[in-house]
Design a protein around this nucleic acid. Structure first.
Length: 204
DNA sequence: CCACGGATTGGCT
DNA sequence: GCCAATCCGTGGA
């Protein structure tokens, strides 16, 4: 078993901090999804922060709706949404109850359970060695690989099914910051965080 | 009830 | 590099 699985599960107090700090600190942490007989794990390499108050790109901007209500809970829940008629994206709810802040997980480096991820994502084996870099290098891709959909929205991340393990911190010099991808409003906020030169990033 | 557009992806020019 | 696919949440009539 991979020794990273001995690391401790992140607790509520990690998530219930300011969204930008949580986003930065989640770089390098290990996302875990446990199924009946399989455990899928991967290192988080890219995220974006969303803030309900003044961030017009956030789903929570404009207040509580049926879709986004989990974003307004206290930090430590999973928020999954469906978009473009095809893709699921997963977020970590952060901060205090009522804030509407969350972090979108945009890219992951596969660590274990990779054969299962490949089956979930492509329904076949890899065509070539390069295709591994297309497995989890985007928010929709990683949800497909991990088998995460709307049925998982609202899951408590301190539970047993989906959670995140602590891991050694990524030094500042190995991280990058940029504006967020794929949005049309509040495009100037530098709220995307990533591990520099990681081959699994959604954009180079 | 209906119209619109999206925190994306992959296929084609 | 450009653009269509495809469903559903949201908001206005």
């Amino acid at each position: 078993m991979n020794d990273m699985l001995l690391n401790k599960k992140l607790k509520k107090n990690f998530y219930q901090r300011e969204v930008l700090k949580v986003a930065r600190d989640l770089l390098g942490k290990i996302l875990v999804k446990s199924e009946k007989s399989k455990t899928l794990t991967g290192k988080i390499v890219e995220l974006e922060a969303y803030h309900g108050d003044f961030d017009q790109a956030a789903h929570s901007y404009g207040g509580i709706t049926n879709r986004n209500k989990i974003m307004f809970e206290e930090g430590g829940y999973l928020y999954v949404y469906f978009t473009y008629g095809a893709h699921h994206c997963c977020n970590v709810v952060t901060g205090k109850k009522g804030q509407g802040t969350a972090v979108l997980i945009r890219a992951i480096e596969p660590v274990s359970g990779i054969d299962r991820m490949i089956k979930n994502r492509f329904g076949r084996k890899l065509k070539n060695d390069r295709e591994i870099y297309n497995l989890t290098s985007g928010p929709g891709k990683l949800c497909k690989a991990f088998g995460i959909d709307r049925s998982h929205s609202g899951i408590d991340l301190t539970g047993k099914e989906i959670f995140i393990l602590d891991n050694k911190n990524i030094p500042n010099k190995e991280t990058g910051v940029s504006t967020r991808i794929g949005i049309t409003r509040s495009t100037d906020l530098p709220w995307r965080f990533f591990i520099k030169n990681n081959p699994y990033l959604s954009r180079k």
